[in-house]
Design a protein around this nucleic acid. Structure first.
Length: 630
DNA sequence: CCCCCCCC
């Protein structure tokens, strides 16, 4: 082990680097990693990062591993006591401390059994004026003469990146295009921070948003944003108002640009699904120029999660997923609960080699313009939201992107797998549905392959035994096939506001005057709406179901207003109408959720959809069950 | 300086 030599003094020189001319070349930057610590980030989808302690035998200092380098740790190529060559780095001042960001590392053999030398903490040594003289202080401008070293370096207002020209593998140097007029060095995205402003990045636009207009108490305006990528990382950049006019036409997806003189802000992580602490805002003096020599800037980077691993991703995180589109749903329109506005959606079913399927929802224009004639395409999705509906589900954000049949190895692998074997299971992959019902046993798992990944079939007895709907605030969804036994007569309907989407109860002022408080309007007549309570039974048990207007109309066969008229005319005709609705069988889609009323907590079973039983399908189902038993 | 991302 004695043949390994660290470059004594390299840590001090690297931390004091403020200009590329001072950069420590890789051949003089052999250091040892004393420890590696995983830092969990709260940022959705960001994944973990690693903080390392780096030593040159004399000093040790903290350093962050660039995101792109974390594979070195995760693959075991570097570990505690590994000796590495630093092929590219940036020295940053962050919150009064000097921090190294390691953009390129080259492992030199297996980890040693021990640490080399007796390194001292660079921060302490530098603060005491004891750090070596190599490289010199960043500047002499410190007003407090007693704090040299890192404190002085902080006052430099930011360090420039190194641009080493290592030919030793690892990260390639970032080369500067000849056409860029201003003198700032090309910076890796990973090295950007709010503490420095003289930089140029050379980055590919991987996603460009539409122009969005907003209006709120603070004012109104328009904006757009792009996702930018280089070999070190990704960052989101946003242009407001004038910047929209200047840059929206210029910036094109997949092209590469030099960007400088923009502001770096702290990213609001809750709104970002990119792996970066910061984001960029284009300003009045921002310069953007297309770069035509861009072969060294990578295309979109994916970190795919296999479908069967999605249950390891927390709901509301984002991730990248690739799969064969096994089913393409039709465009449908729903009313958003939040905005009350209609919105279009389309559902895709993705499958992969894990043998599992997951549903993914497209929204708006993406849903409408999706080419439904595609024949089992491979699609790569970036930055899609993971939800827990039906166990696990996926949903596009406006910041998500999808690429149909991308030319990447994962896509070719999927194509080969699907065409040779996957297609035989088409429409019949395993789903997460069992897990979505609390993992409560029978009927989940293998049964989930039977088709519906939305709602699992249960008998009434199973639904009760399994405690569906009893898990607290989160509802469970399931289906039962059952027969109507009795419909409760009292409170079957209420007089509702006739205006569209109001449904609020109206108060009778007189025979021809019904007042809606919500709409602040009086109407000549109400529109009655059902609030159904129906007792249904299957061969295992009985249960009370709630259902609203549409369900009532289906079960009873007339509108609530019509039935109200019947009731006014003849109580016995009313009872007869309800009696006619019994002894009919339906497939009920049910949402089960706990409900507290008058201090009593019970499970409320609400019918979200009812469909008359398709007896031929039911017979086939039975035949399959019998076959499975034999 | 936006920041909503929707439904079962």
């Amino acid at each position: 082990m004695t043949d390994v030599k660290l470059n004594a003094g390299a840590i001090d020189r690297m931390l004091r680097t403020t200009d590329s001319s001072e950069a420590v070349p890789p051949e003089e930057a052999v250091c040892q990693i004393l420890s590696i610590k995983k830092i969990a980030t709260s940022q959705p989808g960001a994944g973990d990062r690693y903080r390392v302690i780096l030593s040159d035998g004399i000093h040790f200092a903290q350093a962050m591993l660039a995101t792109q380098q974390k594979v070195l740790v995760e693959s075991g190529q570097i570990d505690r006591n590994s000796v590495v060559r630093v092929t590219q780095y940036v020295a940053n001042s962050v919150q009064q401390r000097r921090i190294l960001i390691l953009l390129g590392l080259e492992p030199l053999g297996a980890p040693l059994g021990e640490r080399l030398g007796d390194p001292a903490n660079w921060e302490t040594a530098a603060a005491n004026g004891g750090a070596g003289a190599a490289g010199g202080a960043a500047n002499g401008g410190g007003s407090n003469g007693s704090t040299a070293g890192p404190a002085a370096a902080n006052k430099a207002g930011g360090a420039a990146p190194s641009r080493t020209n290592s030919g030793n593998g690892g990260t390639k140097p970032l080369s500067r295009g000849p056409s860029m007029a201003n003198g700032a060095p090309v910076y890796p995205i990973e090295g950007l921070s709010p503490y420095q402003n003289k930089w140029t990045i050379k980055a590919r636009v991987t996603l460009k948003s539409d122009i969005k207009h907003w209006s709120n108490q603070r004012g109104e305006g328009k904006l757009f944003s792009v996702n930018l990528l280089d070999e070190s990382g990704e960052i989101k950049a946003t242009g407001f108002n004038d910047a929209v006019d200047r840059f929206y036409p210029l910036l094109q997806e997949n092209k590469v640009y030099y960007i400088s003189k923009a502001r770096v802000n702290i990213a609001k992580k809750q709104f970002s699904n990119l792996n970066n602490e910061y984001e960029i805002a284009f300003e009045n003096n921002t310069e953007i120029e297309e770069c035509l020599d861009a072969a060294d800037v990578p295309e979109v980077k994916y970190a795919f999660v296999q479908i069967d691993q999605l249950d390891g991703v927390e709901p509301n995180q984002t991730c990248d997923v690739i799969g064969i589109i096994d089913e393409i749903g039709d465009v449908a329109e729903i009313i958003s609960k939040a905005s009350q506005k209609p919105i279009t959606k389309r559902e895709l079913t993705l499958v992969d080699q894990s043998g599992m399927s997951v549903r993914l929802t497209l929204w708006g224009r993406t849903a409408e313009q999706f080419d439904q004639n595609l024949d089992k395409p491979v699609i790569a999705f970036k930055g899609v939201k993971v939800g827990d509906f039906g166990g696990r589900s996926l949903s596009m954000f406006s910041s998500s992107s999808m690429m149909v049949n991308p030319d990447i190895p994962e896509a070719h692998g999927l194509r080969g797998w699907y065409d040779s074997e996957g297609n035989q299971a088409a429409g019949n992959f395993k789903t997460f549905a069992g897990a979505g019902l609390g993992g409560l046993g029978a009927g989940g798992g293998a049964g989930g392959a039977a088709g519906s990944n939305k709602n699992e079939r249960r008998t009434i007895a199973q639904a009760k035994e399994q405690g569906l709907g009893m898990s607290g605030d989160k509802p469970d969804y399931f289906n039962i096939r059952a027969t109507v036994v009795y419909i409760k007569q009292e409170g079957l309907s209420y007089p509702a506001c006739p205006s569209a989407n109001c449904n609020k109860k109206v108060v009778m002022e007189d025979e021809n005057s019904w007042r809606c408080e919500k709409c602040d309007t009086t109407y000549p007549a109400p529109q009655y709406r059902y609030i159904l309570a129906a007792n249904v039974a299957d061969h295992t048990d009985g249960i009370w179901l709630s259902g609203f207007n549409e369900i009532g109309e289906l079960l009873i066969g007339q509108t609530a207003s019509e039935l109200e008229a019947v009731k006014t005319e003849s109580e016995s005709n009313f009872v007869a109408a309800l009696h006619r609705a019994t002894n009919r069988s339906y497939m009920f889609n049910i949402r089960a959720k706990q409900d507290t009323f008058n201090d009593t907590t019970r499970v409320r079973y609400t019918v979200t959809k009812a469909t008359p039983v398709d007896w031929s399908a039911a017979a086939n189902e039975l035949a399959d069950d019998i076959k499975a038993l034999m």
